[in-house]
Every structure is written in C-alpha cells, then in structure tokens.
C-alpha cells in the first residue's frame, strides 16, 4: 500500500535531519530529538487507535496490544517474540524490523542502526505513557535486520 511508503520516507527525512541538518549536534542530542518526535506521535496515535477498545486487564495485556495491534498498524507485522521477567521488564524481539529492512545486512552499517530505532523507542514509550504505564524503552541491534526493544516499567 502506497501510504506506507510515505511513513518510511518521512521517517528517513527525520533521521537525516537530526543527524546532519543545520548545526552539528551531539549524537545524544540528536537521538533524544528523534525519541521525542516518536513520543509525541505515539502518544497521540494510541489515543486514536484504542478509542473503541475496552480497558486492558493488566500490564501484560497492554504489552500484548503493543506487540500485536500496534505493531501491525505501524510496521505491518507482529512482534516475533515477547519475553518478560514478570517484574516490569519486557523484551520485544522483531526479526525483521521495517526501518532496518532497507539496510544492507552485515556489519558495515551496524553502527548506524540505532539511529533508525530511536523514533520507535519514543513511539512505544509514548503509547505506553498514554495507556498509563511509565517506562524507559531502549533498543539493541546485534544482527541486521533483527532488533530488540527492552521496556523497563517504572513503578512507584
């Protein structure tokens, strides 16, 4: 479907803007900008997506929603594997992440991969924030195009 291409393109532009555009920024600052854009998008998006759904039973139920419905809406596939220690840490494995699937596999571009995950980290954090879960989301890539997102729920 053609509209998906637009989302890919706008994301690419956002990434290239924060890393090259204008004045030279520190890597951390650029990542945090992307993360913030993701947060704003996710926060608003989930509000629209869950408008007609019932209340989620518990945290795990929310995570399942993220892995299934949200991922299908945004990335056109489900998360391949969800793991949890039942103490507030969830790890989402995606074996073929959409933003990384355009990149060559192998080690050459591995160092740039985190740039393409920052937006999604923010997106997930924004969605969870709007569903009432405060958390920290980090991402990790060891082999393109697979990646994993770790969600650490903040309690108290």
């Amino acid at each position: 479907m053609a509209e998906e291409a637009m989302f890919d393109f706008i994301h690419m532009e956002a990434v290239s803007y924060v890393f090259q555009g204008g004045e030279k920024l520190a890597e951390d600052e650029a990542v945090s900008k992307l993360e913030h854009m993701g947060f704003a998008t996710g926060y608003r998006l989930v509000e629209r997506l869950t408008r007609e759904s019932g209340r989620y039973k518990d945290e795990l139920d929310i995570m399942k929603y993220i892995c299934k419905d949200l991922w299908v809406t945004v990335y056109k596939k489900q998360i391949d594997n969800l793991r949890t220690n039942h103490q507030g840490v969830y790890v989402l494995h995606d074996n073929r992440f959409r933003f990384l699937s355009h990149m060559a596999t192998g080690k050459q571009y591995l160092q740039y991969a985190p740039r393409y995950l920052a937006f999604t980290c923010g997106l997930v954090r924004g969605c969870l924030a709007n569903l009432g879960v405060t958390c920290v989301v980090t991402a990790e890539v060891t082999q393109l195009p697979a990646c994993k997102f770790q969600i650490q729920v903040q309690r108290g």
Binding site: M1, E3, E4, M6, F7, I10, H11, E13, A14, Y17, H36, M37, G38, A40, T41, R44, L45, R48, L49, E52, S53, G54, Y56, K57, D61, K64, Y65, K68, D69, V72, T73, V74
Partner: peptide
C-alpha cells in the same frame, strides 16, 4: 487470548493518520 483483535478502524485511514501525526511531530 483475552481480547479479540479490535482494529475496526480502516487500516488505510490509520496509516494515513500515522503519517499525519509523524509529520506533525516533525
């Protein structure tokens, strides 16, 4: 599963909204 998939929304519309919101944050 406690929950059926309830994406009653038109998927085409939803991905349009995703684009709109992403553009807005940008």
């Amino acid at each position: 599963m406690s929950r059926q998939s309830m994406r009653s929304n038109d998927p085409k519309k939803v991905s349009g909204e995703l684009f709109t919101l992403t553009y807005g944050s940008l």
